Amino acid sequence: MSVIDLGECGADFTANPYPYYAKMREAGPVHRVRMTDGTEVWLVVGHEEARAALNDPRLSKSPSVLGLTMLDEELIGPNLLVLDPPDHTRLRKLVAGEFTARRVEGLRPRVQSLTEELVDAMAPAGRADLVDALAFPLPIIVICELLGVPAADRDTFRRWSNEVVTPSGAGAELEAIEGLAAYLDALVEDKRASAPADDLLSALVRARAEDGDRLSLPELRGLAYLLLIAGHETTVNLIGTTVRALLTHPEQLAAVRAEPELLDGAIEEALRWEGPVETATYRFSRESVTLGGTEIPAYQPVLVSLASPGRDPGRFPDPDRFDLRRDARGHLAFGHGIHYCLGAPLARLEARIAIRTLLDRFPRLELDPDAPAWEWLPGLLMRGVRRLPVRW
C-alpha cells in the first residue's frame, strides 16, 4: 500500500481537508499516511469503518501496547483517553454521574446568566472576535466552576490549554504540561486539605470505588486535566463553527431566526459538517485488525477520523451541503463506544444557549467584512479557527 504524505498537502489541507478526505474515501476507507513530522500511521476515513474502529477492543487506547507513554500521561497521570477497561471503566464510572443529561440540565440557569453577561459586555462595541468574547470564556468558566478552579487562574490555564491542544512547538507543549502538572498538584492538595466543597474535583477527592479503592494523586490529576481541557476546547469550536456555518448560509440563518426550534438541528448539522474534533486521539493495534478490507498489522498507531465520516456520501447524501433540516444522527463528532465524549450533553447545552442568545440580541449579526482571512487551528486534532470576527 502506498503512503499518503499529508505534509505535501500543505496549508490547503489545514484550511479545507474535506476534498482530500473525499479522494481517500474513493480509494478506500483505510490508508497509510505520513504525518507532517514524518511519523507513519494508519488513518480510518470511511464512516462505517470509523464507527467500527472506535468500538473495537483490539484497538487499544494505551500507548503501552507499543511500549510508550504519552507526554501528558507521563507528567500528569493516566486519563480516560489513554486507558482501556477495566481501568477506564473504573475511572469513567466515578465521574460519569456528573455529566448525565439531568445533571447538565441543572446547569442551564448558570450557563444562561453567564452567556448574558458576556453578550452584554460585547454589545456596546458593535463588533468582536466571537472566540475571544463568547465561545472561549463561556465553556472555560463553566468547567472551571464545575471543577472548583479559582477564577483568577483561568487566563493562565487558557495559555497552557492552547499549547497542549494546538502546540506552537515541542518546547512550548512540554512547558505547558509541566505547568499544568504542578498547578493540578497544588489544586488537588488544596481540595484534600480544605473543608468539603460542592465541586466536582472535591467530590473526586472524596470518591471511593465500589471496592473502597480511592483515586490516586496521578489519577486525580489525570481526570482533572482531561476534564479541564476536553471540557472547554471542543465547545469553543462547536459554538464558533455553528455560528460561522449559519452566517455563511443566509437562508439557513433566516430559517433559525424564523423557527428557533430549528437551532438544535443546526447544531447537530454543524457537528456532522465540521465537528470540533478532526481526529480521535491515537489508538494502537494489539493484533492484526482488518477494516474495510484493509489489514492493519499488530502494534501500529491508528488515527480514526471524525471529520471525514461526516462527509461520507455513503452515510450522508450530498454531504458537503450544510442543511439544518437534515437528519444528522449517526455523526461521530463526539466519538462512539466506551470512549464517547462524557461532556457531549454539556457542550450541546452551552452551544444552544450561547447561539440562541447571540441571535436574539443581535438581529443584524454578520461576519466582519474587514477582518483578515481565517486562521485555522494547526494539526489533526482540533477543527476550528483561532478568531471569528463578527459585527452587528
Rank of each mutant, 00 (worst) to 15 (best):
G7D: 08
P29Q: 11
V33Q: 03
M35T: 04
M35W: 02
G38K: 12
E40D: 06
W42C: 01
L43M: 10
L43C: 06
A53L: 07
N55K: 11
L68K: 13
M70T: 11
E74I: 05
V82I: 01
P86S: 03
D87P: 00
D87Y: 00
R92C: 08
F99I: 11
R102K: 14
V104P: 01
E105L: 12
L118R: 07
V131H: 12
P139E: 06
I140T: 15
V142F: 08
R154C: 08
D155F: 08
V165K: 00
T166H: 09
L174A: 08
I177R: 03
D190Q: 13
S194C: 07
A195E: 14
D213F: 06
L223N: 00
A224K: 02
L228R: 01
A230R: 00
G231A: 11
T235A: 14
N237Y: 00
L238N: 02
G240E: 00
L247M: 10
L253E: 07
L262A: 11
D264F: 07
D264P: 03
W273N: 03
E278D: 11
Y282S: 11
E287G: 08
V289L: 01
T290I: 12
T294D: 01
Y299D: 15
P301L: 09
V304W: 03
V304K: 01
S308A: 15
G310Y: 04
R311T: 05
G314D: 13
D318C: 09
R329H: 12
F334W: 05
I338P: 03
L342Q: 03
I355R: 01
T357A: 13
L358H: 12
D360W: 03
P363N: 13
P389D: 08
V390C: 08
V390L: 09
